[in-house]
Design a protein around this nucleic acid. Structure first.
Lengths: 196, 196
DNA sequence: CGAGCGATTGAACCAGGTCAAACGGGGTGG
DNA sequence: CCACCCCGTTTGACCTGGTTCAATCGCTCG
């Protein structure tokens, strides 16, 4: 909450939002996707969660005063302070709790079933909520997609290639610079639930 | 909330706690473990979460008025109404939110890594919190353990056999009646974090 | 231009899935 | 009381989807 670490604002793909043990408040994701990681004793990172637009980040800090996870932007993000000072805390909190359970269930689903399905579902979750048929998005690095789905980068790459062959995905301006990939996605071809 | 569906009380292994769409309130698990499932259009169940002692069940009903998941007891459970009428709602809610994120991360971990590790971690989560070295517990049906870890029952069975061979697990009175299994577990041999 | 980094692709291997058979014990009906 | 069935579990043999290892590519940056 202190102004010393006001996270409101935008984050570039790959940039750190907060780290384990830092103090600060909670925010809501207005746009983009965020990954959480635990950091164990020897500094090893382990994927611990995925949050997208509308989800709350750093909710645990409301209680512990410190963040339990490391949060990193998977795609360009915009964050706003939460809960909004003026409003009904109880309602906001209960709502955040409900969303958290939903989010958890969806993330869990990214680690079950065949590789191609998992990648497809993940892309579905990363798509901006503007529901047009064709969307252009910058996908996260394969390493992130691999961590999230509990696959290897090679398998994720092969799955993406398969999606291209099926015409669901289309490389936009080819991969750019550091290898990051921008794609056109035929959203209609992805069977997404787009809940809530 | 309404007395028409007060879930306080005990549930046997395998018994339904609530179903999708039913109305009711939230509870805290005093003892035992619960699995959540989503139910899709054609009635197919899909594992959606795991909650253990201290976790909140049905938090989404505080907002939606109805449950979004089906909840089933994995092990004998005792539930109490939540939040406790008297106390600080805000604190309870924020605390529940923090726990939900933690729980989500741990459940996610049950679907990553080698089969034997996953099963070991799962057992670690199901152990009663009384931290003696050797514990006797009734494990959930293999089907449940398989759904949770995203493995097959055959693989779970083989993993359990391996744990027995390593002396970490010891079949108590052999499997009983319907095949359910009671084991002695050498808790000291399981590398658990037992957080919070 | 060369170094560096992420992505891609190929080939060999293996952990876990799949299929199938058998087991153990409780419940049921004769 | 016993024969039979049911259901969850166990174990074996085989198969395959995904991992692993390794080589190459595309693009940026120094």
């Amino acid at each position: 909450m202190g102004p010393e670490s006001d996270p409101s604002g935008t984050y570039r793909r790959g940039s750190r939002i907060h780290n384990v043990g830092e103090s600060g408040g909670a925010w809501r994701i207005a746009e983009g996707a965020v990954r959480f990681d635990t950091v164990d004793a020897d500094g090893r990172l382990e994927f611990a969660g995925l949050a997208t637009a509308g989800d709350i980040v750093g909710g645990e800090a409301l209680i512990y005063g410190r963040y339990s996870f490391r949060a990193t932007a998977l795609t360009p993000c915009r964050m706003v302070a939460w809960p909004p000072g003026h409003a009904d805390d109880r309602g906001s909190l209960a709502h955040a709790l409900a969303r958290a359970e939903e989010r958890s269930a969806r993330t869990l689903a990214l680690r079950g079933g065949q590789a191609a399905e998992r990648v497809k579902r993940l892309i579905g979750m990363l798509l901006p909520t503007t529901r047009s048929t064709v969307v252009t998005t910058e996908l996260p690095p394969l390493k992130d997609m691999a961590d999230i789905t509990s696959l290897t980068i090679e398998t994720v790459s092969r799955s993406l290639s398969a999606l291209q062959r099926q015409g669901i995905l289309r490389p936009e301006s080819q991969r750019r610079g550091n290898g990051s990939k921008v794609c056109q996605i035929n959203a209609a071809a992805l069977p997404i639930l787009a809940a809530s």
